[in-house]
Lab assay of single mutants.
Amino acid sequence: QTTIQVRVPYRVVGLVVGPKGATIKRIQQRTHTYIVTPGRDKEPVFAVTGMPENVDRAREEIEAHITL
């Protein structure tokens, strides 16, 4: 297991999390990772935990939302 920090712009935190957390839950299920969402007043950084290859996939999925 490994944990990485995925930093995103403030404006996309809501996009990545999705309505009621649906998007981030879907990313967690698809990539078999555990993702901690940043709090409102915190740095916009997601903490992604899982097997290294799964963590990389989750990071790619999160980063895909940044380019939307």
Score class of each variant (00 low, 15 high):
1 Q>L: 13
1 Q>A: 13
1 Q>T: 11
2 T>Q: 10
2 T>C: 12
2 T>L: 12
3 T>F: 04
3 T>M: 01
3 T>H: 00
3 T>G: 02
4 I>R: 01
4 I>W: 03
4 I>L: 09
4 I>D: 10
4 I>N: 05
5 Q>D: 07
5 Q>H: 15
5 Q>N: 11
6 V>F: 02
6 V>C: 01
6 V>R: 06
6 V>G: 15
6 V>Q: 08
6 V>D: 11
6 V>M: 10
7 R>S: 04
7 R>M: 01
7 R>K: 10
7 R>Q: 07
7 R>L: 01
7 R>I: 05
8 V>S: 03
8 V>Y: 03
9 P>G: 02
9 P>M: 04
9 P>L: 00
10 Y>I: 11
11 R>M: 09
11 R>Q: 15
11 R>C: 09
12 V>W: 13
12 V>S: 14
13 V>K: 05
13 V>E: 01
13 V>G: 04
13 V>Y: 02
13 V>D: 04
14 G>M: 10
14 G>F: 03
14 G>Y: 00
15 L>S: 14
15 L>E: 11
15 L>M: 13
16 V>D: 01
16 V>G: 03
16 V>P: 02
16 V>T: 01
16 V>S: 04
16 V>E: 02
17 V>I: 14
17 V>P: 07
17 V>H: 04
18 G>D: 01
18 G>N: 08
18 G>T: 01
18 G>F: 02
18 G>A: 06
18 G>K: 04
19 P>G: 02
19 P>V: 08
19 P>I: 05
19 P>C: 09
20 K>M: 11
20 K>L: 11
20 K>Q: 09
21 G>R: 08
22 A>F: 08
22 A>Y: 01
22 A>H: 03
23 T>E: 10
23 T>S: 09
23 T>Y: 05
24 I>S: 06
24 I>H: 00
24 I>F: 01
24 I>D: 05
24 I>T: 08
24 I>V: 07
24 I>P: 00
24 I>A: 05
25 K>S: 07
25 K>V: 07
25 K>N: 10
25 K>A: 08
26 R>W: 13
26 R>V: 03
26 R>N: 07
26 R>A: 15
26 R>P: 01
27 I>T: 04
27 I>K: 00
27 I>Q: 01
27 I>L: 07
28 Q>M: 15
28 Q>H: 10
29 Q>T: 09
29 Q>C: 08
29 Q>W: 00
30 R>F: 05
30 R>Y: 06
30 R>M: 14
30 R>A: 11
31 T>M: 10
31 T>R: 05
31 T>V: 06
31 T>C: 06
31 T>F: 03
32 H>R: 12
32 H>I: 04
32 H>S: 13
33 T>L: 08
34 Y>N: 15
34 Y>H: 15
34 Y>P: 04
34 Y>Q: 15
34 Y>G: 03
35 I>K: 04
35 I>R: 08
35 I>N: 06
35 I>W: 00
35 I>V: 03
36 V>F: 09
36 V>Q: 12
36 V>N: 12
37 T>P: 14
37 T>F: 09
37 T>Y: 07
38 P>L: 07
38 P>V: 06
38 P>K: 04
39 G>E: 13
39 G>C: 04
39 G>D: 14
40 R>E: 12
40 R>C: 04
40 R>I: 08
40 R>H: 13
40 R>W: 06
40 R>L: 12
42 K>Q: 15
42 K>F: 02
42 K>M: 14
42 K>S: 14
43 E>C: 02
43 E>V: 10
44 P>F: 12
44 P>E: 14
44 P>R: 03
44 P>W: 00
44 P>A: 11
45 V>H: 04
45 V>W: 04
45 V>Q: 02
45 V>A: 02
45 V>F: 05
46 F>E: 10
46 F>K: 02
47 A>L: 12
48 V>A: 08
48 V>I: 14
48 V>W: 00
48 V>S: 08
48 V>Y: 00
49 T>V: 07
49 T>D: 00
49 T>Q: 07
49 T>A: 03
50 G>T: 03
50 G>M: 05
50 G>L: 04
51 M>F: 11
51 M>A: 12
51 M>N: 12
52 P>H: 02
52 P>R: 10
52 P>I: 03
52 P>K: 15
52 P>T: 10
53 E>Y: 09
53 E>H: 08
54 N>I: 12
54 N>G: 07
54 N>C: 14
54 N>Q: 10
55 V>S: 11
55 V>W: 10
55 V>K: 10
55 V>A: 05
55 V>R: 05
55 V>C: 12
55 V>G: 02
56 D>Q: 15
56 D>T: 12
56 D>W: 12
57 R>M: 12
57 R>N: 09
58 A>N: 00
58 A>K: 06
58 A>I: 00
59 R>Y: 06
59 R>I: 09
59 R>T: 02
59 R>N: 00
59 R>F: 05
59 R>G: 02
59 R>W: 00
59 R>D: 00
60 E>Q: 14
60 E>P: 04
60 E>F: 04
60 E>H: 10
61 E>M: 15
61 E>H: 04
61 E>L: 14
62 I>A: 09
62 I>L: 07
62 I>C: 03
62 I>P: 02
63 E>Q: 12
63 E>W: 14
63 E>I: 11
63 E>F: 12
64 A>I: 06
64 A>R: 13
64 A>Q: 14
64 A>M: 05
64 A>G: 10
64 A>T: 09
64 A>H: 13
64 A>Y: 08
65 H>A: 13
65 H>Y: 12
66 I>T: 10
66 I>N: 07
66 I>C: 12
66 I>W: 11
66 I>P: 01
67 T>A: 15
68 L>W: 14
68 L>Y: 13
68 L>N: 14
68 L>M: 15
